[in-house]
């Protein structure tokens, strides 16, 4: 049973890695076309000065795309998973804080964000749950970074079993 699981884990890991890659590529792609809107979405959380928010909003889509590409290739998987987890934690913290302050904003996770039409209620809970799901993907890769068909594998050779633990 245990050895069977071990044999399957790199393939499960591949699925997880590609899943998280798609999440980042999608998130980055949906924002990269309108960097000003991305900055406004960050500023809508009202946690940092306008100019800082605009810079972070402009940098974020590109970082997300880079994370997606690295995961797609399976390059530096553990590090990429760690950065992903850290970013997701920041996002969750941001949504929780917006919620607790009674702001009515869209999380801006995929796409424009910030502006929410009047009369439309923010969907904070689903957004948080979704991010926690993504966090689980990142956590898996953080614990078991060695996945099938990865640049890591091609570049560093076969793993020694205890190398990852």
């Amino acid at each position: 049973m245990n050895t069977e699981l071990r044999a399957w884990r790199p393939w499960l890991g591949l699925a997880v890695r590609l899943g998280l890659a798609v999440v980042w590529l999608w998130a980055g792609w949906s924002k990269v076309g309108d960097l000003a809107a991305s900055g406004r979405a960050v500023h809508a959380y009202q946690v940092m000065p306008y100019d800082v928010a605009m810079v972070i909003g402009a940098a974020l889509p590109f970082v997300e795309l880079a994370l997606g590409l690295l995961l797609l290739l399976g390059l530096a998987t553990r590090l990429t998973a760690g950065v992903s987890a850290a970013l997701l934690l920041v996002f969750v913290a941001g949504i929780v804080s917006a919620w607790s302050r009674g702001l009515t904003i869209d999380c801006g996770c995929f796409g424009v964000g910030g502006e929410l039409p009047a009369g439309e209620n923010p969907s904070y809970l689903p957004e948080i749950l979704r991010d926690i799901g993504f966090l689980a993907l990142a956590g898996f890769l953080l614990i078991w970074p060695r996945t099938a068909v990865s640049a890591d594998g091609a570049l560093t050779g076969e793993p020694v079993e205890d190398d990852n633990e």
Binding site: V55, A58, A59, L60, P61, F62, V63
Partner: peptide, 9 residues
């Protein structure tokens, strides 16, 4: 990647 975003912006 982040710096590219910044400079594009």
């Amino acid at each position: 990647a982040g710096l590219i975003g910044w400079s594009v912006w």
